[in-house]
């Protein structure tokens, strides 16, 4: 797939999502918002998890932090968009500091440390009642206007964030940073030996991957109007995001978007039809993905698959 094809596919997908209010009802608009939101998260995760190869499980930490910084800013009278910007900056700074400490760990230790951040932030948020409202959660000032206006506002916002993260991904992928990150992903010691400042590159990648989770979190808080610790610092989310990315193809530019789209649509269908078993089915999908599709949907050589199928049909034909 050439880069141009990739960008074209992405552009088409953006148009499909952004135009839902024109051709579909509220249900689909809501879904489009959610898909754009998770696409921004998977694209973000891809920068550290895919390009750099660090198994980060801290998505929900930065998402949740973004939720709370955004919500608290808005409650303090900061205009909505500025509150989102504040959340982005706050999360970026925190991620840079935390990253500088934790990126010295590798493999399982890094994974555990990054998931530990989610837990610590959730616990702190739950118990710091005077600031965060504790387990009761926080109400966020609602956007004025009818339900359609609100939906369209947040659709525009989430799609914009998704496009921004995609552009960042493309720039990283084509630039010096992306090349250095791939070197780190392949062999960190060797990357160091050829002159890649590995610590700096990793911290930059981690910060980039965290900051937009903060933006998305703040936008999510404004959208739903209510947040609580278990909903925002969710372990399920922190693992779902990498799974979606793996489904599409980690380390590719378009993979996170494809993976998110396929996963969310699948999840929606399962929710609607198998309410009691949706988790088990998601689990089964995850297991099958890991066992039979390790490179993700984009890494399949469809030509080979088609050729094999054709050969099989021919054999069947010959046998008959």
């Amino acid at each position: 797939m050439t880069p141009t094809t990739r960008y074209l596919i992405f552009a088409l997908w953006v148009i499909v999502l952004a135009s839902t209010p024109l051709w579909a009802g509220n249900y689909f608009v809501r879904m489009a918002i959610t898909i754009a939101m998770f696409s921004a998260l998977t694209l973000s995760w891809n920068l550290i998890g895919g390009f750099t190869g660090y198994p980060s499980l801290s998505t929900a930490a930065f998402f949740g932090l973004g939720c709370y910084v955004g919500a608290l800013s808005q409650r303090a009278g900061v205009p909505m968009i500025l509150a989102w910007v504040a959340a982005t900056v706050f999360v970026a700074v925190l991620a840079a500091v935390f990253g500088a400490i934790i990126l010295r760990l590798r493999g399982h230790y890094f994974a555990i440390g990054s998931i530990g951040l989610v837990e610590v932030l959730r616990l702190v948020t739950s118990s710091w009642g005077s600031l965060t409202g504790g387990g009761d959660g926080l109400n966020v000032p609602l956007v004025q206007g009818g339900p359609n206006v609100v939906a369209q506002t947040f659709l525009a916002a989430m799609v914009t964030i998704m496009v921004i993260v995609f552009v960042v991904t493309v720039l990283v992928d084509r630039g010096r940073l992306g090349f250095g990150l791939r070197c780190i992903q392949q062999n960190e010691d060797a990357a160091d030996m050829v002159g890649v400042d590995t610590t700096r590159y990793k911290v930059i990648a981690y910060t980039l991957s965290a900051m937009f989770c903060g933006t998305v979190g703040a936008a999510y808080a404004s959208w739903t109007g209510y947040i609580d610790p278990t909903d925002t610092f969710s372990i399920l989310m922190t693992i779902k995001v990498p799974v979606m990315c793996l489904l599409g193809g980690a380390g590719t530019v378009l993979g996170p978007v494809v993976g998110t789209g396929v996963y969310m649509i699948l999840e929606e269908i399962l929710w609607a039809n198998f309410l009691d078993y949706n988790r088990a089915i998601l689990g089964a999908v995850t297991v099958l993905l890991i066992l039979f599709l390790p490179g993700g949907l984009l890494r399949i050589s469809y030509k080979t698959v088609l050729a094999q199928l054709a050969a099989r049909f021919n054999r069947l034909g010959a046998a008959a």
């Binding site: 010096r176 090349f179 050829v194 002159g195 890649v196």
Partner: peptide, 12 residues
């Protein structure tokens, strides 16, 4: 990779 990072080449 060697040329870009170690050899200080300006671009990829």
């Amino acid at each position: 990779a060697g040329a870009l990072f170690g050899g200080a080449q300006a671009s990829r």
